[in-house]
Amino acid sequence: MGDRDVAGLDRVKLLAARYRAAVDRPYLASALYALSIVPSVTVPTMAVDRRWRCYVSPGFVDSTPVEELAGVWIHEVAHLLRDHHGRADRLPAAEQADRLRVNVAQDCEINDDLVADGVPLPEGRLVPGLFGLPPGRLFEAYLPRIPSSPQVHDCGSGAHGRHVSWEPRDTDGGIGPVEVGALRRTTAQAMRAHLRGRGDLPEGWRRWADQVLEPVVNWRRMLAGAVREAVAWAAGAVDYTYRRPSRRTPALRGVVLPSLRRPLPRVAVVVDTSGSMGEGELAAALAEITGVLREVGVRGNRVTVLACDADVRAVSRVTDVTQVTLTGGGGTDMRAGIAAALAVPDRPSVVIVLTDGLTPWPAETPSCRVICVLIGDAASSGRPDPPAWAETVRVPAV
């Protein structure tokens, strides 16, 4: 059998590749050695699950040089360190269903950094440029521009979050959330020490380490909470109606009693499409909003999106973020968008405004709930805050 185990895996070569990855990028050593190896003839190349088990194809190890195997080790552990499966769980259900498309967007986020860092990777690596996308973004920003069901290798549930055939159904084995949190923090601290020692890191890894060691407010959770609260408030505004008489009416001769009506909320999303707005941030925020609205039952023709710079450019009823047309590029005046949203026959009960904050606001309080989503660096650069009547959520630049 030589260097091969009972599954036919050349374990010596695989471990030599992991050792090389740890020597070349010592700040990843703890994370790399936390991965447990599971030989599999089903997995195409290498893949990981949520419990930090690494599934390895013996044939892939045989055909891949050690230096490229080292790059794949780094690629797979990056999925886990960056919590790709946890972030994928927060995507709208429709986006989660196409796991390979999510995987491609995640690979673009990782490989963008690895290529810049000189990490050797096998032929066919996926980078943002292949899809005409800019570098340096998170996978949530890339996802809307990735084609459906691409033919690519599957990195497992540790990446896209969906169970695949080579993974066990049980949750035993591997490592748990507490250990994972410690591993991420240890790795981020090692990256900081590497930088202090005059080492270099790709921008994506720097950003990740900063977020782990200096966590910012979870804007996705804040935005989801704000939208759910506003929709619940609107749905709770019960009123009386005679269209369907009360069931107590037959007991009262000659008297018709109204029944209570619980209205279904309508939501308007006003999107700032002026020249200062970043496409990635807009896509991420829109995806979050549409996902939350679906979760709380607001869908179909009850969501209107208005593209607005200094004037309203496009109005559309949408069921999915891919149906949104964002046109504009001029000045910024969200007053026009809010006014247009409130002028339609079916007035919304909630208006969500996506903007960088460089806009005038209505002088009077609108007649509905308003959520202002301040996007990008301009949202934290000393710009005046939105009016007190607007609930504000800040989304950092991607």
Rank of each mutant, 00 (worst) to 15 (best):
V23L: 11
R25H: 15
P26E: 01
L28Q: 12
S30L: 06
S30N: 02
P39K: 08
S40H: 02
D49P: 05
V61W: 00
S63E: 07
T64P: 04
P65C: 05
E67C: 11
V77L: 06
G86F: 00
E95N: 12
L100C: 01
V104I: 07
Q106L: 03
E109G: 09
D112C: 08
G118M: 02
P120I: 09
R125F: 13
L126F: 01
V127Y: 04
G129Y: 02
Y142N: 08
Y142R: 12
P147C: 07
P147R: 05
S148Y: 01
G156Y: 00
V164D: 05
P168C: 00
D170L: 06
D170S: 11
I175H: 06
V178I: 10
A182E: 13
T186I: 04
T187Q: 04
A188I: 03
L195V: 14
G197Y: 00
G197I: 01
D200C: 10
E203I: 11
A209I: 14
L213M: 02
E214A: 04
V216C: 02
V216S: 10
N218F: 05
A226V: 08
E229S: 08
G236F: 00
D239C: 10
R247N: 05
V256D: 05
L257E: 04
S259Q: 03
R261V: 12
R262I: 01
P263V: 13
L264N: 14
V267D: 01
A268H: 03
V269G: 11
G278M: 04
A285I: 11
V292N: 10
G297S: 05
V303T: 12
A307W: 06
A307H: 09
D309W: 12
V312G: 07
V312I: 04
V318Y: 08
V318R: 09
G329Q: 08
G329M: 09
G331H: 03
T332K: 03
R335Y: 06
R335Q: 12
G337T: 07
A339N: 01
A340C: 05
A340S: 10
A341I: 04
A343E: 05
V350Q: 01
T355H: 05
G357R: 09
T359L: 14
P360I: 03
P366V: 09
S367Y: 04
C368L: 03
R369H: 10
C372A: 15
D377Q: 14
A379C: 13
G382V: 07
P387G: 08
V393R: 02
V395Y: 13
V395I: 15
P396W: 02
P396L: 06
P396K: 04
